[in-house]
């Protein structure tokens, strides 16, 4: 198992390196002189010169790439053109908000979705199965930002019981939790339906498998058969989907953050794009990619824990 994890983890390095080089190359796609482009109307010759100096924009490409890579290894992602803050500290501030939103939302959605799907499969003749299917189709059909707007209208405007804006960081843990309810629901609701349907389908297959019949033949209690013997097999496709879906999740988090005006990676990147604050955009995307790659790594590792056959392929 350890060998598998290390082998799998080593793959992260070339992936991130590739992204780095692409991000670096993007500066060359900017029309004209990058420094004036970034500074926009504020571009005075002095500022342009200072920026060129600071970002080594006047050096040859390989030298710049070298500076860039060395900086990243040292944890230095440059400074914001707009605010002068270090990009790394801007990211350190934004990241926990996004991670909290994305992973509470996904965690709770996965738990509810998988259990709901399993339950619907076990009670295959009851109306729950149909209800799960319909709910999941609805959940998948509604984009995150529409769900976010609808929830906001419903619970902040029509029946104003939940806060609409911000992250609630000034109100302690309870404030954070309360501010998380709507955005996390908006982000996770599609996942609940999707995972429920996926789990239901694979669970129905698994429940007909020979090894389930074996367990029944030896009188293993029905609940243990369903929620241990069968579910551990039935959950495998969901893990794959979650791993592949983390990109979509982060993308959704960006929209939801903007709608609920939550601080976070999404808001940081989008604001930086509008401000043409290139170092921030670069650093933000790099970190988002790293998150994505790490999430996939985690999914693969948990996959190997659930399905022992994987490690040996």
């Amino acid at each position: 198992m350890l060998k598998y994890i290390i082998k799998r983890a080593l793959w992260v390095i070339p992936t991130l390196l590739g992204v780095l080089i692409i991000l670096f190359g993007l500066t060359y796609l900017m029309p004209g002189d990058p420094a004036s482009a970034m500074l926009g109307p504020r571009a005075t010759p002095e500022l342009v010169a200072e920026l060129n100096e600071r970002m080594h924009l006047d050096r040859a490409m390989p030298v710049r790439l070298g500076y860039y890579l060395v900086g990243i290894v040292k944890g230095d992602l440059g400074t914001s053109v707009w605010s002068g803050h270090k990009v790394s500290s801007l990211l350190a501030e934004a990241l926990p908000h996004t991670a909290l939103l994305a992973f509470t939302s996904l965690g709770i959605a996965a738990l509810i979705g998988i259990l709901l799907g399993a339950f619907a499969a076990v009670r295959r003749d009851s109306p729950i199965g149909g209800a799960v299917t319909i709910a999941s189709l609805l959940g998948v059909a509604i984009p995150d930002f529409v769900a976010a707007l609808l929830l906001m209208l419903l619970f902040c405007v029509q029946i104003p019981i939940l806060p609409a804006l911000g992250a609630g960081t000034d109100d302690g843990l309870i404030g954070i939790a309360v501010h998380l309810i709507l955005p996390a629901t908006a982000l996770g609701i599609g996942w609940v339906g999707y995972l429920a349907r996926l789990t239901r389908e694979s669970m129905l297959d698994v429940l007909d498998a020979d090894y389930i019949r074996t367990a029944r033949a030896f009188a293993v209690p029905g609940r243990a058969i369903a929620y241990q013997y069968a579910l551990k097999n039935a959950v495998i496709p969901s893990i794959t989907v979650i791993g592949l879906g983390v990109g979509k999740l982060l993308g959704g988090a960006v929209f939801v953050e903007i709608i609920f005006s939550r601080p976070g990676l999404g808001k940081l990147i989008v604001d930086a794009v509008y401000a043409r604050d290139f170092p921030v955009v670069q650093g933000g995307i790099l970190v988002a990619t790293a998150l994505f790659v790490l999430a996939n790594l985690l999914a693969d590792i948990s996959y190997a824990f659930v399905d022992p056959r994987i490690q040996y392929d």
Binding site: A217, A219, N233, D307
Partner: peptide, 30 residues
């Protein structure tokens, strides 16, 4: 009755055991 008075050995051993649990777990459970 099942696993008690009457036991069964199934025809297709390839699929008769649960792939994601150890032999130990499956046997001790039974």
């Amino acid at each position: 009755i099942r696993g008690q008075e009457i036991t069964m050995i199934f025809q297709n051993p390839q699929n008769a055991l649960n792939p994601v649990f150890k032999i130990e777990t499956q046997m001790t459970d039974i």
